[in-house]
Amino acid sequence: TETREFDNEEEARKEAERLRRKGQDVQIRKKGNRWELRRT
């Protein structure tokens, strides 16, 4: 599992969408005042 953190939700969602188009399974969750993007 690979995780990346983003400062805002929009960036996290854009990156998640990009990875999903490549066929990756991605989850986003709020972590304090940041957003965590998890690739499984």
Rank of each mutant, 00 (worst) to 15 (best):
D7E: 10
K14H: 10
T3M: 11
E15P: 00
D25R: 11
E15I: 05
R38G: 13
E5Y: 15
K22H: 11
Q24C: 14
V26F: 08
D25V: 13
R4F: 14
A16V: 06
T3P: 11
E10G: 07
N33I: 02
K14V: 10
R18Q: 09
E9A: 05
R20A: 08
R20Y: 05
E2Q: 11
T3Y: 13
K30P: 04
E9Q: 05
A12I: 02
R4G: 05
N33G: 09
R21N: 11
N33L: 04
T1Q: 11
K30Q: 07
D7S: 06
D25E: 12
K31Y: 02
K14R: 11
V26W: 12
K22V: 11
A16F: 11
N33V: 02
E15H: 07
A12W: 00
A16E: 05
F6V: 01
R21E: 12
Q27V: 14
V26R: 00
R38Y: 15
R20P: 01
R13K: 12
V26N: 02
K22I: 13
R4T: 11
R29E: 10
I28H: 01
R18I: 09
T40P: 07
R18W: 05
I28A: 03
L19I: 05
G23T: 01
R38V: 15
A16G: 06
A12Q: 00
R13F: 12
R20G: 05
R34Q: 09
R21A: 14
N33W: 01
L37D: 13
R4M: 14
R18S: 08
L19R: 04
D25K: 12
T3D: 07
R4L: 14
R34W: 08
R13L: 14
K22A: 14
W35T: 02
T1P: 13
E5S: 12
R4N: 07
T40Q: 10
T3L: 13
R21P: 01
W35R: 02
N8Y: 05
V26T: 05
L19M: 12
L37A: 04
R38L: 15
T40F: 09
I28K: 01
R18A: 09
N33S: 05
R38N: 12
E17M: 08
K22G: 11
Q27K: 07
N8H: 05
D7W: 06
V26D: 01
E17H: 08
K30M: 04
D25F: 12
N8D: 10
E5F: 15
R18T: 05
L19H: 04
K31A: 09
R18L: 10
E9H: 07
E17N: 09
K22T: 12
A16R: 04
N8P: 00
G32T: 00
N33K: 04
D25L: 13
Q24N: 09
E10M: 09
